[in-house]
Computed example of a mutant assay.
Amino acid sequence: MIIVKTREEIELMRESALIVSKTLGMLASEVKPGVTTLELDTLAETFIRDHGAVPGFLGLYDFPNTLCMSPNAQVVHGIPNKTPLQEGDIISIDCGAIKNEFYGDHAYTFAVGEISEDVKRLLDVTKKSLYVGIEQFKVGNRVGDVGYAIQKFTEDAGYGVVRELVGHGLGRTMHEDPEMPNYGRRGRGKKFIEGMVVAIEPMTNMGTHRIKQLRDGWTILTDDGKPSAHFEHDVAIIDGKPEILSTFKYINEALGIVTNEEDAFRQELLTV
């Protein structure tokens, strides 16, 4: 069942999403060769609590940490550890926070120092596919329209789209209806309505779309050992159109990136 949010609830969800955005922005300056993912996890937990929120992943389904940290061929759900990041790595950081009883949940894949041109392209295409999918999240469209748009964009670029892991509705619980696959057929699936809030999160592999799971019961990695990228935003439908509640603004500021990629999805949200 899709749980529609009021304008007031969407504003509360924006606060939760922005806590996550600011956490990722803080981490952007800390992701560098020699740092461990466990050190980054500790920084994130402290930052979230200091900003009046609670880590959303810690203890969720018994997950042991604040962040999902997935380097290189790991797709998602990597567990922070004491292994230092190395020059040329990439690291997908997925973060959640709870404030005002609502979840925020989004993700970004960072370069560790200088990375190869082919991996840069993977990150660029995956992030662009996120916005291609968001464009289709509007009243009257369906789940398959978002999935089809992401799948076509990434497969046309020569990459594999993960099938088993999907985006989702978001609210007072981390995972609500509907599931939001990054593949699909246009005109299929549940119809989008005013007040929906979802997490859209393409997961794109440089090689095969196939994945496997480590024995830790959490870590997902590509079946062929090639790199994977993951980007995620929280998005609401307001006045029939998509409004991004999270932002990469703080990451962009930390990394010196100039972009207008989110401008089309920012509206003046009326409060009642």
Rank of each mutant, 00 (worst) to 15 (best):
L12D: 12
K128G: 04
F137Q: 03
E117F: 08
E9N: 14
L255Q: 12
K190W: 04
Y131F: 15
G113K: 13
G52K: 07
K22Y: 11
N182P: 00
Q86N: 13
A44L: 08
S29F: 01
D177C: 09
N65M: 05
E117A: 14
F102V: 14
L18Y: 02
G167C: 04
A229N: 02
D124C: 05
R210V: 14
D234M: 13
P242F: 00
P181H: 06
Y108K: 00
A264V: 09
K99C: 05
S92M: 12
I10M: 00
K22R: 15
G240K: 00
V54D: 05
M180Q: 12
G96N: 15
E232D: 11
E101P: 07
K32M: 10
G88F: 11
S70Y: 01
G169T: 00
Q267D: 00
F192I: 03
H233I: 03
A53L: 06
Q74H: 12
D234E: 15
L38T: 04
M206R: 15
G256I: 05
T37C: 05
H230S: 09
K190R: 11
S70W: 03
E87K: 11
V235S: 03
T37F: 04
E117H: 07
A97M: 08
I251L: 07
Q267C: 04
A44I: 07
I98A: 08
S228G: 13
G140Q: 09
G160S: 13
H209M: 08
R210G: 12
L40G: 07
D263F: 06
M203R: 15
I200E: 08
L122T: 08
G144L: 10
L60N: 04
R215N: 14
K5C: 00
N81K: 09
I2S: 13
Y250F: 15
V143F: 03
G195P: 01
L245V: 15
L165S: 07
V272K: 02
G217T: 12
G144I: 10
G88Q: 09
G34L: 05
D62K: 13
I10C: 00
A44M: 10
R172W: 02
